[in-house]
Computed example of a mutant assay.
Amino acid sequence: MFRKLAFTATLLALTASTSLAEGLDEINPDVAKRLYNAEMLDPGQPVGASKWRDFVAKNPPPWKIGYASSYAGNTWRAAVMDELQNKIVPEWKALGLLSDVVITQSNLNDSTQIQQIRQLVDQKVDAIIVCCSNPTALNATVKYAADKGVPVFSLTGYLTSEYSINSSVNYQVAGYEIGKDMADQLGGKGKVLVVEGIPGTSGSDSQNRGVLAGLSTAPDIKIAGSVAGMWTDQVAQGEVQKWLATNPGKLDGIVVQSAAEMGVLRAVQQSGRGDIPVAIGGELGALCYWRNNPDYIRSSFQVWPPADEIELIWNIMMRTLQGQGPKIQSILVDPVKLSHDDLKAVMKEDCSVDTAEWLKVGADRWGGASAYLDDFFLRPADPKAFKK
C-alpha cells in the first residue's frame, strides 16, 4: 500500500557519482548509499560512530524517561503526545521496563529547554528525548547529561553534539522529492511560493534545502517568495494570506512543510485562488481534501508521521538503554510516497477536512521494524523481550 520512496533518475545519477559520508561502513551499504550519501545529506547531520556503542544503563529497569519538548502549539506535537501517553507509556509500563515519563515544554525558548534538560538530569532520569530543537544550542547540556550517564535522543531532527543520538527521515532527500514533484506537476515552469517550517531548526532547514534543490531541477520554475509557517496551520494560514494579498500576480504552486498544509489550503481558498496546488503531507484534513479532489495533486510525501516518529526514537532509546550499542550517531529512514490510490485504500470518501489528526504510516514502513533497526546496533535484539 504505502511505498518507500523510489528515487528519481536525477537523484540516482547524482548519488551514483558521489562518495558516502564517513563512519558508515558497519551498516547496510544500500541504506548507506541511499540515505547517507554526502551529496544528499544535510552537511550538519552527524553520522560518525556513536559515543554510546558500549553504554550500559547505570540503573536496571524500570527506567525513568524525560521528554523535553520544545513546543506544544501544533497538531503534530499533539499527535506525538497522544501516542506517547496513551499507547507507548502504558505498553512499556506493562512490560516492566518503564516507571515514568517526565514531560517539559519550553515554547521554542532555547534557554528554557536547556534549564529543563538539566533539571531532568538532576531528577535522575535514565534517558532524555528532545524534539525538533536548535541543532547547536543544546550541545553543552547534552554533554552535561552524558557526563552523568544520561543519553539524549533527538526526535525528528538532529543535534550536532557528538553525544546525541538522532533519528529522522533524510529531510534533504524528502524535500528534494517534494520540490521536484511540484516542478513536474507544473510541467517544469511556473512560480512557486515556499512555506518553510521553523527556520533555524535542523528539520526545517534540511527540508527547505532539499525543496529548493528539487524545484531547481526545472530551470523555468521561479521562487515567487518564501514565508515561515512555523509548522502550525494557524500561523501558516495568516502568513500565506498576507503574502497573497500583497502579491496578486500569477502563482502556480505552493510547497509547504507539514504541519501547516491545511492552513495554507484555507488561505488559498479564502483568497479565491483555490486552483493553486499545495503540497500535502500527513495532516488528515488536507489528505481528505485530496481524497475528494483526485486531480488536485499527484502525490503526497510522508516526512514525519508523528506517531511513527515517537515510536522510532523510543525503540532506539530502549535498545540503547538495554546495551545494544548504536553504531552511528543518526538513524535515518526513507520518506514514504503516497499515491491517490494508496490514499483511497486507507481513507473513506466521507472523511472530514476539519480533522486535526495525522496519518499513521506504521512501524514496518517507518524504520521501526526489527530487521531495519537491527542493522544500526552492534548487539541487536527485540527491545520488548528484554529481561531485567
Rank of each mutant, 00 (worst) to 15 (best):
L287W: 03
G281R: 01
G282D: 09
A307V: 05
L287V: 09
S330G: 00
Q329G: 00
Q270T: 11
L251R: 05
N292P: 11
V255F: 07
W304S: 06
E283A: 11
W290D: 14
I328C: 07
E311K: 14
S258W: 08
L332C: 07
V264C: 07
L265H: 00
K242C: 06
G263S: 13
A286Q: 14
Q269M: 11
D334E: 15
L244H: 02
Y296N: 01
T320I: 09
P277T: 12
V256L: 08
L338T: 13
L251I: 10
V336L: 15
G281K: 00
K337L: 14
S300L: 06
P277G: 10
P305R: 08
Q237G: 04
Y289F: 15
Q257S: 12
I316N: 04
V278T: 04
Q241V: 03
A286E: 14
V336M: 13
G274W: 13
Q234G: 12
I297F: 09
N292T: 15
P326C: 05
L332V: 10
G281A: 09
P326R: 01
K250D: 15
P305H: 10
G253H: 03
T320S: 04
P306F: 04
V264D: 00
M262I: 06
C288K: 00
V336K: 05
N315F: 04
I316C: 05
E283Y: 09
G323K: 07
A279C: 14
P277A: 12
Q270D: 14
T320A: 02
Q269H: 10
W304K: 01
W243Q: 10
A260D: 14
I310Q: 06
P326H: 05
V278D: 03
L338E: 12
K250A: 15
E311A: 12
Q257F: 07
S271Y: 08
P306D: 06
V333P: 00
Q329C: 01
E239S: 10
E261C: 14
P305M: 12
N293L: 12
V240M: 13
T246W: 03
E309P: 01
Q324T: 15
L284F: 01
V303L: 12
A307C: 06
G323R: 06
L287P: 00
G282S: 11
N293Y: 12
V256E: 01
S258M: 09
A267F: 10
V278N: 01
I254N: 00
E309H: 04
V256C: 09
G281I: 02
